[in-house]
Amino acid sequence: MPTMIFPGNYESLEKIAEFVTAEARASGLNRTQVFAVETAVDEACSNIIEHAYGGEGIGDIHCTTISEPERFTIVLEDHGRGFDPATVPDPDLSAPLRDRKSHGLGFYMMCQWMDEVRFDFHENRNRLTMVKLKA
């Protein structure tokens, strides 16, 4: 159950991806599953920096991976503002070009790529748990 702590900067995204994809591969996920995990983690960490912390250089991101026989779990923790997923509308993926919105895709992609996405908030700490099943 390795944990790494990264500065909440966009430059950390590539290092976070390297850590998580290495752990995902070691856990036995196939290439498609590793790519799904990489995408979901990148979107989640971008959201933490942009929305929870409100910018770069404000706080850290704690990243833990858990490898189990049937699942690979990533836990991301931050000390920024809480997040209510119910406030994020689904993007309209069939809208014509002129009506496409610029935001909302990241959270949608996290939920689509992962089998479970769970948010917990307590004691000024946000915890995001994402699970990818191996089967």
């Binding site: 971008s46 070009l97 002129r98 610029s102 990241g106 992609m109």
Partner: peptide, 19 residues
């Protein structure tokens, strides 16, 4: 090798401008 929604936003914005 990889594109996130931040990259997709650039593409959609560019397509809107070009068209």
């Amino acid at each position: 090798e990889f594109i996130s929604s931040a990259g997709l936003r650039v593409l959609i914005s560019t397509q809107k401008t070009c068209k």
